[in-house]
């Protein structure tokens, strides 16, 4: 509402000759209405736009953690970006990021979250409660705790191998031989609860009469799910998809604790690469450039989801 009125007042402001007195009044009104927004805008500017702008500037310098370039970083234009785009490491990390986001967030968390939500809706109450508590337990854990727990699970002398040995199977070095699989499973475990909660709420909003009517018409359970339930919770799915994608794109702690991006660079996603370049190899400027690219990728995903899934249209 407020935005509509504000737009109206500015467009009227462009034709001052016709209503001079009104314009002054309108301007005062606009100013009055904008004033309550200033703290919010100022906060956004200082804590959101500011750092992004600073990061953009930082990515155009050769700032380092120590040495002469720490004291006097030089402006190097887009050098960092050209170096980045011609670097094999970067494309490798970009590919792993895509894999990580695609498999753990888009597929893993969403599909498993939907499955659990549906099961919860149909299962007897005690079962649903226990499953819900277990899944949410993984999610309420602070990321660092979850990451340590998962490290302890996948480590060579960890729970998983102990379990495999107990049933007579050969243990494996999961974090060494299949680092991407380990971190993807870890992120699915950790993030599914969020999707489950979102879908649970969405499914509860679907009126049961529609499903019943379809059932009377002879629709199978699968048909009802894909033809009726899914389209009706489409908006929840798209919102959830966007949130999990963006959250997974920025996942650092989980991967860093479990594998540190290794062995070699076999689980180095973009955030881990940015950290390594900036703080291990001491190239703050170059690391910042990677972070900026990650930000751009996130924005791209957001736009993509909004366009493709059109959450607002019914």
């Amino acid at each position: 509402m407020a935005t509509l009125e504000l737009d109206g007042s500015t467009s009227r402001g462009r034709v001052p000759d016709t209503r001079p007195r009104g314009t002054a009044k309108e301007a005062a009104r606009t100013a009055g209405r904008l004033l309550p927004l200033t703290p919010a805008i100022a906060l956004m500017g200082v804590f959101l736009a500011g750092p992004i702008g600073y990061a953009l500037y930082g990515s155009l310098t050769n700032a380092a953690l120590s040495g002469y370039r720490a004291a006097n970083p030089e402006f190097v234009g887009i050098d960092n970006y050209t170096r980045l785009l011609t670097s094999g490491d970067f494309w490798h990390a970009a590919w792993l990021t895509l894999l990580f986001v695609g498999l753990s967030a888009v597929v893993g968390q969403n599909v498993l979250g939907m499955f659990l939500a549906v099961v919860q809706n149909h299962a007897p109450k005690p079962v649903a409660n226990v499953v819900g508590a277990l899944v949410v337990g993984a999610w309420v854990m602070p990321e660092i705790v979850a990451a340590f727990a998962l490290y302890a699970f996948f480590a060579s002398d960890g729970t998983l191998n102990a379990g495999l040995e107990a049933v007579g199977l050969a243990p494996a070095s999961w974090l060494i031989d299949t680092p991407m699989l380990a971190v993807i499973l870890a992120n699915v475990w950790r993030g599914t609860a969020f999707s489950m909660l979102v879908f649970n709420a969405a499914l509860a909003e679907v009126p049961p009469e529609i499903g019943e009517a379809a059932q009377i018409d002879g629709a199978t359970a699968l048909q009802r799910f894909f033809r009726i339930t899914l389209p009706m919770v489409r908006r929840a799915i798209s919102t959830n998809m966007m949130l999990t994608t963006l959250q997974t794109l920025g996942t650092f702690t989980l991967i860093f604790v479990m594998t540190s991006g290794g062995p070699g660079n076999r689980s180095t996603t973009l955030p881990v690469l940015a950290f390594q370049e900036a703080f291990k190899l001491a190239q703050i400027g170059y690391g910042t450039a990677i972070a900026v690219v990650t930000l751009a990728v996130g924005a791209l995903f957001a736009v993509l989801y909004v366009r493709v899934l059109k959450p607002e249209v019914d």
Partner: peptide, 23 residues
Amino acid sequence: TPDYSQISSNIQVAVESVVTGSA
């Protein structure tokens, strides 16, 4: 030299890539 610490980090990158068999 003031660059040594950065160069040393790249030595470590080279060594790890050989140790893990990725290069």
